[in-house]
Design a protein around this nucleic acid. Structure first.
Length: 489
RNA sequence: GGCCCCAUCGUCUAGUGGUUAGGACAUCACUCUUUCAAGGUGAAGAUACGGGUUCGACUCCCGUUGGGGCCA
């Protein structure tokens, strides 16, 4: 009978929920879903001064946006709660007591200064040093320090003769001598548990079967294993994920461009595209398959196929993937509802106007669709919405000249008389006009585009003109011509 | 300083002793085209280094270098 799969993520609400945290969450979630297991969210908020409620919200919102639903945790509850570590102090204390009773932990009465001095001493001598103060003080000295108001920290009595070994699913066998590990603190002098201690207690009580987390914790794992052994608890499986590095090969940090998941949302990345991208950052299904929806990734995902090497995070592929999703992986309706908030936040149009002209706005968005890397790029469509847009200087230099001006002015007469001002008719008349003039169509199309949109790049000119409308097109052209002829340009 | 982890094109990766080392993004060229995208075709581009093991190593072992991390 296979053991129930239960995994967890345990973010601290102290910083932003960035790409790295999101990927750890994703891999845990994928593993749980693949095995029909449970995905648990536990908030590591033991650092009261740095934790905040807002950051908890950020975590929940980020996970929700990504569509990584958790089975137990905040907002969901569950039979192994509470899921906030700050509410579990009593539990940790209880477990600490056990270790004290069995003499597997002891109180450390050293002051920080003393420890620092000791460290410096050995460092200067270039000697290896591990803090162990098991026999350092007599009972009377301890009492004396207590009376002086000192609060001791609880240290774990490392079984120095042991060699700790575990088999990591990603990295294989990892070994370490216990003698290389100091008698680490498990309860700080302020009464709070340290990461390693709380983690072991919680993972056990929450019946976590697989611990899937970043490699930065691989060095913590031997400590945790010693703790499991001290408590005589079953040891979970471990899978340590490679770290995501920035372009400078340094760990992603806020300073070096690490961005919060919510920023991706606000720029108009599609959650599915981000999920697909993140899944491929450190994992691959084995073949050449790259574009995969959630169901497909869940189906194919295994921890064994995780690449142990650190990955450098390059956003260009994400942009490409997002554009690909915008064009090919969502239907028209989904696209239009997804882009709505970005149209409104562009500020070119009020929500009311949007509702009134929905059909027209939708056509603009559809026209822009293949050109959008992120939904926010809809802001480039400014010239559809308002006459108050900027003209690109270089483009004007190129196309605002006597010849182009006279051509376009003449063509305006044709436009004025056009029956139906639609793309087809505009194109038709323009081609005929050019034929009569014996010029290439581009000689008219390019200046016309610049006069009407202010830029050389954009969707097809005829569709663009139809949407902008006859009156505004002609007005823009005449305005820019006037500007040219009065030398104000 | 000690300990731990890692190493295939610029980037993400496939590959598990015998391959012209495959794919994707990015780059470049061509193509399509009214521009920009998108699309199509193609080019260029990698096994960090040095030793072993082996008939044969990208692949296994050791070392070096480089990167990342933990102790902090």
């Amino acid at each position: 009978m296979k053991q129930d799969i239960r995994v967890r993520i345990a973010p601290s609400p102290t910083g932003f929920f960035h790409i790295g945290s999101a990927r750890t969450a994703l891999y845990n979630w994928l593993f749980a879903r693949h095995h029909n297991g449970k995905f648990i969210l536990r908030i590591e908020d033991t650092d009261a001064t740095r934790s905040s409620k807002e950051m908890v919200e950020v975590i929940l919102t980020s996970l929700n946006w990504l569509g990584l639903d958790w089975d137990e945790g905040p907002q969901k509850g569950g039979e192994y709660g509470p899921y906030f570590q700050s509410e579990r102090k009593e539990i940790y204390r209880e477990y600490a007591e056990k270790l004290i009773k069995e003499e597997k932990a002891y109180w450390c009465f050293c002051t920080e200064e003393e420890i620092e001095k000791e460290r410096q001493y050995y460092l200067n001598k270039k000697m290896d040093w591990k803090h162990r103060c098991r026999e350092k003080f007599t009972e009377t000295e301890k009492q004396k320090r207590m009376n002086a108001g000192m609060k001791p920290a609880l240290r774990f009595k490392v079984p120095v003769e042991k060699r700790i070994s575990f088999s990591d699913i990603v990295h294989g066998v990892v070994e370490k001598n216990a003698s290389d590990i100091e008698d680490f603190v498990i309860i700080k002098s302020d009464g709070m548990p340290t990461y390693n201690f709380a983690c072991v207690v919680d993972d056990f009580l929450m019946k976590i079967s697989h611990v899937i987390r970043g490699v930065e914790h691989i060095a913590n794992t031997p400590k945790q294993i010693m703790l499991y052994e001290a408590f005589n608890l079953p040891i979970p499986f471990f899978a340590h994920l490679p770290v995501i590095l920035g372009k400078d090969k340094k760990k992603l940090s806020k300073r070096l461009g690490a961005r919060s998941v919510l920023e991706y949302r606000d720029e108009g990345y599609l959650p599915d595209a981000l999920i697909n991208f993140l899944a491929l950052l450190g994992w691959s299904p084995g073949g050449d398959e790259e574009i995969m929806d959630r169901e497909r990734i869940i189906e194919l995902f295994t921890l064994e196929r995780i690449n142990p090497a650190n990955a450098i995070y390059d956003e260009t592929k994400l942009e490409w993937l997002n554009n690909h999703y915008i064009i090919n992986r969502i239907d028209e309706k989904t696209f239009l509802t997804s882009i709505e908030p970005f149209v409104i936040s562009s500020g070119y149009i009020t929500e009311e106007e949007y509702k009134k002209n929905r059909e027209w706005v939708d056509r603009v968005c559809l026209l822009m669709r293949p050109r959008l890397k992120v939904l926010k790029d809809i802001s480039r469509a400014k010239y559809f919405f308002t006459d108050d847009f900027e003209y690109d200087e270089n483009s004007l230099k190129k196309y605002l000249n006597d010849k182009s001006v006279s051509l376009t002015r003449e063509f305006m007469v044709v436009l004025k008389e056009l029956k139906d001002f639609n793309a087809h008719n505009i194109e038709d008349s323009l081609r005929k006009f050019c034929e009569q003039k014996a010029i290439k169509t581009r000689e008219l199309i390019h200046p016309l585009r610049v006069y009407i949109t202010g830029t050389e790049a954009g969707p097809g000119l005829f569709e663009t003109m139809e949407l902008i409308g006859r009156a505004r097109c002609i007005k823009r052209v005449l305005n820019i011509i006037e500007r040219y002829e009065h030398g104000t340009s």
